[in-house]
């Protein structure tokens, strides 16, 4: 164990520089965000992830955000265990009808101000499951969505770009 820890101290960090953001999307986003709320929250956002019926592919890539390469916490973004601690709900999946009530209650349990990010094609528009008797389709069918991150699943870099937009100060 000592050797492993020592190597951790002596080796260069694996963490990579932040990805470049797309300016056009940024401008749209800035208008969506309430500058006052952002001032109150500072540069930190707590994220509660909610799987609303995904195939678990999105969860794998969201989990990857915590690894040393992406190190989400350096941006002040962190995953929390309860919606009551959260500023952001990161929702995946085509909202299985069996998850509708749980998603709605999770949203209600999240204190204002709050934002909802729909991550992955299923959460954005229902993906391959849009026409199923068992799915509601986009997350916006159930709760208001502030930001969409498409991809099947979105890569950690795409997720990171999306989440960082929540932190950019309004012009």
């Amino acid at each position: 164990m000592r050797k492993t820890l020592l190597q951790g101290l002596l080796n260069r960090p694996l963490t990579e520089p932040p990805p470049l953001l797309d300016d056009a999307e940024l401008a749209v986003l800035a208008t969506q965000l309430d500058a006052a709320a952002r001032r109150r929250l500072g540069r930190g956002l707590s994220i509660r992830e909610v799987d609303a019926g995904s195939c678990n592919g999105c969860e794998l890539e969201i989990n990857a955000l915590n690894n040393a390469f992406y190190d989400l916490e350096r941006y002040g973004l962190r995953f929390v265990a309860s919606p009551r601690h959260a500023d952001v709900l990161l929702v995946t999946g085509p909202v299985a009808k069996n998850m509708r009530e749980a998603l709605r209650r999770t949203w209600l349990a999240t204190p204002d101000p709050k934002w909802v990010v729909a991550a992955g094609d299923c959460a954005v528009d229902g993906g391959l499951f849009a026409d199923s008797y068992a799915c509601l389709g986009p997350v916006s069918q159930v709760i208001p969505v502030d930001l969409r991150i498409p991809g099947c699943p979105p890569s950690p870099v795409q997720l990171l770009c999306g989440l960082l937009k929540l932190l950019i100060p309004a012009p």
Binding site: D51, G53, G57, A96, N98, F129, D131, S132, Y133, A134
Partner: peptide, 24 residues
């Protein structure tokens, strides 16, 4: 809770589309 109606979506799907569903 994550029931998505996979079998109903597979029914009548082209083989190519069904392969994408199976992969999810």
């Amino acid at each position: 809770y994550t029931h998505k109606g996979q079998e109903s979506l597979l029914q009548g799907a082209s083989i190519g589309h069904a392969a994408r569903l199976a992969g999810r």
